[in-house]
């Protein structure tokens, strides 16, 4: 373990290390997304279940640990993961810019397949902006029409009300970007961690695609269902 502790800063300075950090932090965020999505889908079980789940998030671990301990720890880990993920991406992007100080005159053609690959950097920025909005909306209630006095269920219903369709569109677009991000990101993470072999590439690409579709689909379901009145 000592070797690991000493090695990490050196690894992190390397380009491969930075990608590994992105892969690991991305993995943590994917696990979070899966849990978050499962929680979201409880809305289809009705207000009671959904509100109870929201309350449980805060009471989990009691009475062994004080109120909101588990949730706070999760938030700390997630914040760290997001920061490291963004920091690594930014550092690699700056490095890439420095690595080619003179650009090509003729339009650089892309020959590798994969639209998702080319959305990683600007898509990541949009996703980051979306997370800020989302936190202001349903964590801090600053931009939510109902605010802190309502139940979580009511806040969601009010958020995606049919006359606030533009909010729904914003959420759907952002979530689809998350899907694209995952599609390349997950496959790229498998590579960054060195898991890809000559034979398993088809499987890894498939796994990444399934992950992207399931997560994007699961998250899109709630705002759409609310806007179209299938819930509430």
């Amino acid at each position: 373990m000592q070797a690991v502790a000493i090695a990490i800063p050196a690894i992190y300075r390397s380009t491969v290390g930075k990608k590994a950090v992105m892969a690991v932090t991305g993995g943590i965020l994917v696990l979070f997304l899966v849990a978050h999505m499962v929680g979201n889908l409880k809305i289809f079980l009705g207000a009671g279940d959904f509100n109870h789940y929201a309350e449980w998030l805060r009471t989990a671990g009691e009475p062994a640990v004080p109120h909101r301990t588990v949730l706070t720890l999760t938030e700390v880990v997630l914040t760290l993961a997001v920061l490291l993920h963004i920091w690594s991406a930014t550092s690699l992007a700056l490095r890439a810019r420095a690595a080619r100080p003179v650009k090509y005159e003729s339009r650089k053609k892309s020959h590798a397949r994969g639209y998702a690959t080319h959305t990683m950097r600007y898509g990541g920025v949009i996703i980051a902006l979306f997370i800020i909005w989302h936190l202001l909306d349903l964590t801090f209630y600053a931009v939510n029409p109902l605010g802190s006095s309502a139940t979580p269920y009511d806040r969601v219903i009010a958020d995606f009300a049919p006359d606030r369709w533009y909010i729904t569109v914003w959420y759907v677009v952002a979530v689809l970007l998350v899907g694209l991000h995952l599609w390349h990101g997950a496959w790229s993470a498998f590579n960054s961690l060195g898991w890809r072999t000559k034979r398993n590439d088809g499987f890894l690409r498939g796994l990444a695609a399934v992950l992207a579709v399931v997560i994007a689909g699961g998250f899109v379901a709630v705002p759409i269902a609310v806007t179209f009145g299938w819930v509430g």
Binding site: T15, V16, K18, K19, A20, L92, R95, A96, A98, A99, R100, S110, H111, A112, R113, G114, T117, H118, M120, H184, W187, S188, F190, N191, S192, L193, G194, W195, R196, T197, K198, D201
Partner: peptide, 26 residues
């Protein structure tokens, strides 16, 4: 720069060196 698995290299490579060598490097 650092590799972000865009795959452009393997397409441009005159010998078609496959991308999985990068996974092995990692």
């Amino acid at each position: 720069g650092g590799c972000t698995l865009t795959g452009e290299c393997t397409v441009a490579c005159p010998k078609g060196i496959p991308l999985d060598v990068i996974s092995r490097l990692n």
